[in-house]
Design a binder for these strands. Structure first.
Lengths: 142, 142
DNA sequence: TATTTTTTGCGAAATATTTGCAAGAAGAAC
DNA sequence: GTTCTTCTTGCAAATATTTCGCAAAAAATA
């Protein structure tokens, strides 16, 4: 989605109280750079082209970054997680139920409906941000 | 969600062109009976109290029933799938990002926004139904 | 620089799901 | 009902994804 300088990434990591390490910078920077949510598998592939980094390290960094709210985790029913930068803005995508096509849809807000849902909820008072996955069948598979 | 007679379940299965077997009836009936999406693990537990059924059989039936559109698969970022009956009506739930609490929210439509999103999409012409997972932190975890 | 805490690599383990294969059951045709 | 074909099942083993234990290395702090 966006490219950040090393300094900017460092600041992001410091602000949430995590230690700044080369590997953590790499993981965050790489997730931030994608236009679409990236799978852990692809992320590891991508990172390994440049750096020697263990898969456990990638998983651990994804978890810590997610826990501290810097990245967002999405599933899409594919049996493996996808990650994207947490922008604070909701994220909407349409997902093909047959192949693994994902399309990000921007510019349409459902914030009002979300507010209504939270009002209806008994277990949630508020949510920070939300993401929506709409499942369908893409043109190719149809 | 709802209880169906054996005959009704049989008809549902026949209409999508799958063979009617005791195990398939059990799986579909059990998924249909839940008020909330059920995990495969819980489903197997539940079924095994009454019947001798192999986990592979449960997985294969869930897959075939899902493929034929009788049940819906949901992930919630928990690392394992949940299933619910495919009603043709959209399904909305709020999910806690810390624990595994799920709350179904009924009665709020976002169909208009979904339509707008599909209009914006390049890869999808239409979708049959959709499900939305909103992530937040529940009162307990907050 | 010394100290404390976090992170990393490595291999192994845990979890979730799928698969190959032979035997058994369902549906269709006779 | 019998026969034939195709689908389904059980079982065990394989895959895929993610996590964990532990010792060594690096980051933040004093």
């Amino acid at each position: 989605m966006a490219t950040y300088t090393r300094d900017e990434l460092e600041t992001m990591i410091q602000e949430v109280g995590l230690r700044v390490t080369d590997h953590r910078l790499l993981v965050l920077g790489s997730v931030a750079r994608q236009r679409k949510p990236i799978t852990v598998y692809d992320l590891i592939e991508t990172l390994r082209k440049k750096e020697d980094i263990d898969q456990a390290t990638v998983y651990r960094n994804l978890n810590s970054l997610h826990e501290m709210g810097l990245i967002r985790r999405l599933d899409f029913n594919h049996g493996h997680a996808h990650y994207e930068l947490e922008t604070g803005r909701p994220s909407h995508q349409i997902v093909c139920g047959k192949c693994e096509t994902i399309e990000k849809i921007e510019g349409i807000s459902i914030d009002d409906s979300i507010k209504k849902m939270i009002k209806k909820s008994k277990k949630f008072k508020q949510i920070s941000t939300h993401s929506i996955e709409i499942y369908g069948v893409c043109k190719n598979c149809a």
